[in-house]
Structures are given as structure tokens and as C-alpha cells.
Design a binder for these strands. Sequence first.
DNA 1: TATTGTTATACTCTATAACTATA
DNA 2: TATAGTTATAGAGTATAACAATA
Lengths: 141, 141
Amino acid sequence: MAAARSDLLATLAPLTRALRRIEDAAAADVGLTMWQYAILAVVGEGDQQNQAEVAARLGYSKNRIVADLDLLERRSLLIRQPGSDRRANLLRATPAGSQLERRIREEIHRGEDELLATLDPQQRAALLAAIRIMTNALQEH
Amino acid sequence: MAAARSDLLATLAPLTRALRRIEDAAAADVGLTMWQYAILAVVGEGDQQNQAEVAARLGYSKNRIVADLDLLERRSLLIRQPGSDRRANLLRATPAGSQLERRIREEIHRGEDELLATLDPQQRAALLAAIRIMTNALQEH
DNA sequence: TATTGTTATACTCTATAACTATA
DNA sequence: TATAGTTATAGAGTATAACAATA
């Protein structure tokens, strides 16, 4: 008899909880929330994006992002720039914002490495590949 | 130059969001929340557990679980039994509760299978093995 | 008429602390 | 004194709808 199969979500839960704690702590160290860090990370990816695009990319919403952007702009980590469409704000990280984002990410990676260190390089690659394949399949729907 | 490494949490996010939608929908189909289904699943694992133990296993809390147990008991899916320690309630799923739990789980598995179908058997096994290894490492800390 | 950003509002979820009954 | 369950409360997080400016 095969072992009872449990949900994938339940299987992943302890891992995602641990990852969430790592991100929360790393962002809180510099006075940001996880969402504010996530916004900086998406904005720093390069191509100019407006607020709604960044929100959608994060599974966030266009109204909730407003207060976070206010804070990030107040701390000079990010600016709202008017574009050709004067309704939309194009977002751009300042040098200070990019620098802080890298610093948070490095701290997160240190935490993740403690978890990933339990895998050998081949297992690690297989894990990331499997996640990527499933995620790509999701986007095509 | 290596590609910029992004956070593992962000990498997993689309997948966990999709899994969450699958669970929410499957539970909602029979008038339950995801947490209520999760409680049924843990209680059904066999060994008698009290409320606090079930909550801890889910990353839930002993106070939030109360209202969910009230509902599950009202729907005769689960019962609170007094044990030798009369402060504690031992939880046990009723036959109807076990049956409903299986039904929800099968529905969840159908959704998961659509995602897992994008992986070949070897990739699928590698994914689950990697998750298990990391999760076990977490529990040892 | 539709869309971007914004604000207001209500609702849900969660964390904390107290209370009761047992131990 | 400590623990299991319960209840109350406040705070954070979230969803919905409306509004002004622009397209």
C-alpha cells in the first residue's frame, strides 16, 4: 500500500514559513516590511514599470501599494516619475534604494543558504529547475 | 557573469499562490475554509491529539482553532472527547468527517496533478525529496 | 467610456492578554 | 503555580468601491 499522499501546500508550508521569517527579519533590520523590500526588488529589475504593473507582478494590489510607495519615496529609496501617459507613475529606484535592496537580498541569501546547504549541488539544481518548470506552466494559462 | 539570484520565497510565490487557490476552492466547494480542511486532515492522521497539538502542527494557534472546531463539531465532522486529563479535548474525526476530508483531498490532488504533470517522474521525485530534506533540517533546529 | 493612482470603508485575519477549570 | 481551552479586544492585513485626472 502506498503511503497516504498529503497536499503539496502542506508539504511546502514549513519551508515557506521559514523563508518568510528570513525575509521579514532581513527587511525589518533596515526598517522596511517584506512588501516594501519586494517592491524595491521588482522596481530594480530594470524596465520602467508603473504602480499597477509592479503590484500585479507581486500579487499585490494597486491601492495597497500606495502607502508603501509613499514610505519608500519619503526615505528617498525610490521615485515616482511622470511618463508620457500622465496618469501613470513610472517607478525608479534611487542609488540608495538599489544599494539597500542589495543589502537586504544578501542578508536573505545568507539565511536561505543555511537551508539550501542541506542539499547537494545536484539536488539544489533539480529543486530550482522543478520550480521553474511548474511556474512557467502557470504563466501560460 | 552569473544570473542575478532572486529570493527563494519570490521564486516559490506563484506556485504557492496557485496551490492556495486550489485548496481554497476545494474546501469552499463543501462549505469549509482551508484551515478547517487542514484541521480535519491532521486530526485524521491517527494518534489522538488535543487542540493545542493540532494547532501547533498547523502553525495555527490555540485560540483561533476554537471557532473552527465549533463549526466542524456542529457539522458532525469531528468530535471533542474528554480524556484522562479533563482540561484537554481529544479530537477525533467522525466517519462523515473522514469521508469529506478524503473527498476534498482528492479534489486538491486533481488540481495539483495539473501542475505536477509538467514534470517527468524523476523531476517530480527530486522536487519532493529536496523539499523533504530541507523540511527535516528545519525540524532539527 | 476606460484607466491610473488615490482615498475611504468595511471586513477578515491574527496576536495578545485575560479568564475558567483543571492539574 | 502551570496548563488546556475559551473569550474579548485591538491591530494588521486585505478587498471593495468610489473619486479625480487623464486617455
